[in-house]
């Protein structure tokens, strides 16, 4: 598979590099990050599970957008990705 163009993004202030054609989830996985949020009740780590937008396990916050499915969202240059739940729609 041809390599896509490199895209820089951050995850919790770490600067990472993915490539065009990545989802946010696949870019995180390619950087060795397999879980990117913790559950609200048990604090258990969550990453990708169904991979096709059904399970909502892979939620991330991206800039102002909250609870985005990382497996459906194309990675974009400059995405500021954070664990979902760090900020709610209501603000801090």
């Amino acid at each position: 598979m041809a390599e896509g163009q490199a895209l820089r993004f951050t995850f919790s202030d770490r600067v990472l590099v993915g490539r065009a054609g990545d989802t946010v989830a696949s870019a995180l996985i390619a950087n060795g990050i397999r879980s990117w949020r913790r559950t609200r009740r048990g604090g258990r780590p969550r990453g990708i599970y169904c991979g096709i937008g059904t399970c909502f396990d892979c939620l991330v916050d991206i800039g102002e957008e909250v609870a985005v499915r990382a497996c459906l969202r194309p990675l974009q240059e400059g995405d500021r990705v954070a664990p979902s739940g760090s900020v709610g729609p209501a603000g801090p």
């Binding site: 397999r34 879980s35 258990r44 780590p45 969550r46 990453g47 990708i48 599970y49 169904c50 991979g51 096709i52 497996c71």
Partner: peptide
């Protein structure tokens, strides 16, 4: 529910 456990479809 551990990271790394997923559906075949996800992989």
């Amino acid at each position: 529910d551990l990271p790394g456990a997923m559906t075949p479809g996800a992989a």
